[in-house]
Computed example of a mutant assay.
Amino acid sequence: MKHRQLLALLLLRANHAVSTDQLVDGMWPGDPPSSAKGNVKTYISVLRPQVCQAGALIETVPRGYRLLVPVELVDVLLFEALVQAGTRAAQDGDDARAVQHLQRATALWRGEALQDVLPCGGPIRDAATRLNEKRLAVVQDLAAALIRLGRYGDAIDYLRTAVCEEPLRERLWSLLMVALHREGRRADSLAAYLEFRAIIVKSIGLEPSRDLRTLHSRILLDDPL
């Protein structure tokens, strides 16, 4: 497990220097053993030939190490690059190209980020939280682009999965309601609102936001969205 955590910490900062202190903090958050720095050095020596076989290189740098690796070999780096490309395409008004990039980005995911190496806390847990949050933001951007392209069914598929994972995220439900309504499924759109309202009232005792209530009212009136 420690070897995997060390590799994860280096990959999260791929092509950048990571200090030994940062590695110790990531591998033993809050309670490092007295031998921690020596253990890191030992684990590095074990990892070096393995990453070399994969086309990467662990360099020793002042006060730490740097993992040199091509972007295409690391899912998190490729994910970030695809998201940036998709965001630029959307800003340029090219939703078709944005969808291509964002679909490739979401397809890289297999479950939760860093799920095989998560400690109880510390930098790896924080990184996993940020990555999972970013994935959901990308799903929202992807669904919005699909809706703009009139690909409502595809948007609904992504959004249905996402609301199961994050049922309190109102933006996902809003997009789902719009996609369902535009696909001609007004009753399903209204049902989605009621489902979200029941979840949020039960979970945190709050009503949906004014914006979502306004959207619900417009769908009730069958206004074009």
Rank of each mutant, 00 (worst) to 15 (best):
L102M: 11
R104W: 08
R104E: 05
R104F: 06
A105T: 09
A105S: 11
A107I: 13
A107H: 14
L108H: 15
W109A: 08
G111K: 13
E112C: 11
E112S: 15
E112D: 15
A113S: 11
Q115M: 05
L118Q: 13
L118Y: 14
L118W: 12
C120K: 15
G121H: 12
P123G: 02
D126F: 03
A127T: 11
A127K: 03
A128W: 03
R130S: 08
R130K: 14
R130M: 08
E133M: 13
E133A: 14
K134Y: 12
R135L: 09
R135M: 04
L136H: 15
A137Y: 11
A137L: 10
Q140A: 09
Q140R: 12
A143H: 03
A145T: 04
A145F: 00
A145N: 06
A145H: 04
L146P: 04
L146V: 07
L146T: 07
I147V: 11
I147A: 00
R148K: 11
L149W: 14
G150T: 13
G153Y: 05
D154I: 02
D154W: 00
A155K: 03
A155F: 03
I156L: 01
D157I: 15
D157P: 05
Y158W: 10
R160C: 03
R160E: 01
R160H: 06
R160Q: 05
T161I: 13
T161Y: 10
A162S: 10
V163W: 00
V163P: 06
C164Q: 15
E165Q: 15
E166G: 09
E166Y: 14
L168D: 14
R169F: 02
R171H: 11
R171Q: 10
S174Q: 15
L175Q: 07
M177D: 08
V178P: 07
V178R: 06
V178H: 02
A179P: 08
A179T: 05
A179C: 04
H181K: 07
E183G: 02
E183P: 01
E183V: 07
G184R: 02
G184S: 02
R185M: 01
R186T: 08
R186E: 03
A187S: 12
A187K: 11
D188V: 00
D188I: 00
S189P: 10
S189V: 01
